[in-house]
Design a binder for these strands. Structure first.
Lengths: 149, 149
DNA sequence: TTCGATGCAAAGCCTTTGCATCCTG
DNA sequence: CAGGATGCAAAGGCTTTGCATCGAA
């Protein structure tokens, strides 16, 4: 089983974007390539800041439009992991997140088997589509920097 | 074991607010009473809208200041359950949430035993403080209104 | 008087929208 | 030429901040 080489996921996303009738413009290609292999869960602002140097005409509207298109195609997911800006996640497989209380960094957490198996105490008639877990705490970097508690 | 009568939780929160050195002003009392027995997870705007008729001079700054003070005292928790406005939760015991994809309503979900017991795939050195689960799906009301899928 | 709390308004983020312009087919 | 996509700017929600005023100890 080989590792996924750079670009694979971006190419897959671009192909699916194209299949769904959207044009593969330079802006969209740049956004997809920036996001596809990024597990840091960037905000729209962060993506814009990274892309602006190479594409000086990029606009926020295009970033948001593209992220919205990608989300509609189920190629990324918009996540509310903390108050503030929405974060975008190229990993659409079921998984969870560890969020640092101090620096706000986000890491993926592999899902456990059976983690979605209980609906006992859900509201009557609630149909579950997905279960998200957020592990809140302190990342190693912040613990090292700050003394740990 | 008796049910908690109306006002108990509000009184407890007010007492603890006072103990932590904050003055129990009419505005703070009104905000606490509005939130203490409310499980709908209101936004700051919603609280303001409910309080404004009875307290015409209430300002947003006071609502946010008071919510921030309550959160610092661990009497409420600010939650990011979906993109958009932060929701405030008077239930600070460990529990989870069911969030409707359509109407955005939020219901509490009782925690399961052992639901926080595994940290196997967490990032190295990440110290877990709390585990939140969000059940996403469709509430009964929306399924009834819309046809169910 | 002193110090915290309030209310108002302005400013700051984050995001969406309207519209003119630009490509591409 | 027709349609979608872009870029810009304005608007709109959510939240914070600055500051003058108010009120209780």
């Amino acid at each position: 089983m080989r590792m996924r080489p750079e670009g694979d996921r971006a190419d897959l996303m671009l192909a699916r974007l194209g299949e769904s009738g959207l044009k593969l413009t330079p802006q969209r290609i740049a956004i997809v390539r920036e996001l596809a292999d990024d597990s840091s869960h960037p905000t729209a602002q962060e993506l814009f800041d990274r892309l602006a140097p190479a594409m000086p005409t990029m606009s926020f509207a295009t970033v948001y439009n593209t992220l919205d298109a990608l989300a509609r195609c189920n190629l990324i997911e918009a996540r509310a992991l903390a108050p503030g800006a929405t974060r975008f996640d190229p990993n659409v497989e079921p998984h969870h997140h560890a969020v640092c209380d101090r620096c706000g960094c986000v890491a993926d957490v592999a899902p456990r088997p059976r983690s979605t198996s209980v609906d006992a105490s859900l509201p009557d008639g609630f149909a579950v589509r997905a279960v998200e877990q957020i592990f809140r705490g302190t990342c190693q970097r912040c613990r090292d920097a700050d003394g740990g508690d």
